[in-house]
């Protein structure tokens, strides 16, 4: 049974996908080389004594982290503001993303029930996708700089910036989650005369709820980091405090705030796991 197959059989047994896979891998490597050159990636410069010494000196001031009651009170207030900016921004993003997702996803197309989507709905979906691309291709930092001019320094600019950029991201990923999962249940409901939102609620949401939830919480976590960055340009919160501490080379304060970030990210991680377990 295990004897070597004759020559003719060996030709048949050659995997037709193999040569394409090898060629694809080589192509990707060839394309990556110029990228490496363009980024001037030279990690050994990190070990240059001239730059290493001041870095280590700054890192040494991280210990002990600042913990006087007055500063802790300030960190608590600014943390609360940061979480509030992130949460309000996410809420705005959801308000934008949910209707856009329902309208843009192929999985809820009624005309595609018969195979190919009709021209009108296809064009409308492409237009919505383009809108989502536009929303998320402008970095939230740029949105924030625009809105700071309109609303002045403060949290409002941060909320608007996160809402727009994250609305675009959520809309794209939500509709891709809905399309990549099993769509049969939703299709069957549409075929039997249910509406699009009904088919989403009863056909698509049950399977995709935990993935949608986990992505949303991950994005909330990103929004917290993002609102810190926006603080650097005057949107308030921990970012602003971190900005001034770094400029003053106050390592202890920087360390305390980094500890708060780690705690917030860990909290989001636990909340995601717990919620996914709860809806399972």
């Amino acid at each position: 049974m295990t004897a070597t197959p004759p020559t003719a059989a060996r030709a048949v047994l050659r995997d037709p996908a193999w040569s394409r896979r090898v060629a694809g891998t080589l192509l990707v490597l060839a394309l990556c080389w110029p990228l490496l050159a363009a980024t001037e990636f030279a990690p050994w410069r990190l070990l240059d004594p001239g730059s290493l010494r001041p870095t280590l000196a700054f890192l040494a001031t991280f210990l002990p982290p600042a913990h006087d009651p007055e500063f802790l009170g300030l960190v608590a207030r600014e943390t609360w503001r940061t979480v509030a900016v992130a949460s309000a921004g996410m809420t705005l993003a959801l308000v934008l993303a949910v209707p856009l997702t329902l309208a843009a996803t192929r999985a809820l197309s009624i005309s595609a029930l018969t195979g190919r989507m009709a021209a009108g709905p296809l064009a409308a979906r492409q237009a919505l996708r383009a809108l989502l691309v536009l929303l998320r291709s402008v970095p939230e930092l740029v949105w924030a700089l625009v809105f700071v001019r309109v609303t002045g320094l403060g949290a409002t600019a941060g909320v608007l910036a996160i809402g727009l950029t994250y609305g675009g991201m959520l809309g794209k990923v939500y509709s891709e989650i809905l399309e990549s999962g099993e769509t049969e249940a939703g299709t069957a409901l549409l075929r039997n005369g249910a509406g699009r939102v009904q088919a989403f609620l009863h056909g698509l949401l049950p399977q995709n709820a935990s993935e949608l939830l986990s992505y949303t919480i991950y994005r909330w976590e990103c929004a917290i980091r993002s609102s810190v960055v926006l603080g650097f340009v005057g949107a308030g919160g921990l970012g602003q405090a971190l900005d001034s501490a770094t400029k003053m080379f106050n390592g202890g304060e920087v360390a305390t705030m980094l500890i708060v970030f780690v705690a917030l990210v860990a909290l989001a991680d636990r909340a995601s796991a717990w919620l996914r377990g709860a809806i399972d």
Binding site: A185, A188, R191, N192, G193, A194, H202, G203, L204, P206
Partner: peptide, 27 residues
């Protein structure tokens, strides 16, 4: 809405309860 097509593989969401999946026929 006046037609009911039952495919060979029942299109029931695996993570839904039977009662919800059944009553979805009335959507």
């Amino acid at each position: 809405g006046r037609l009911f097509l039952a495919p060979q593989t029942p299109p029931l969401p695996p993570r839904q309860r039977v009662v919800t999946a059944l009553l979805a026929a009335r959507l």
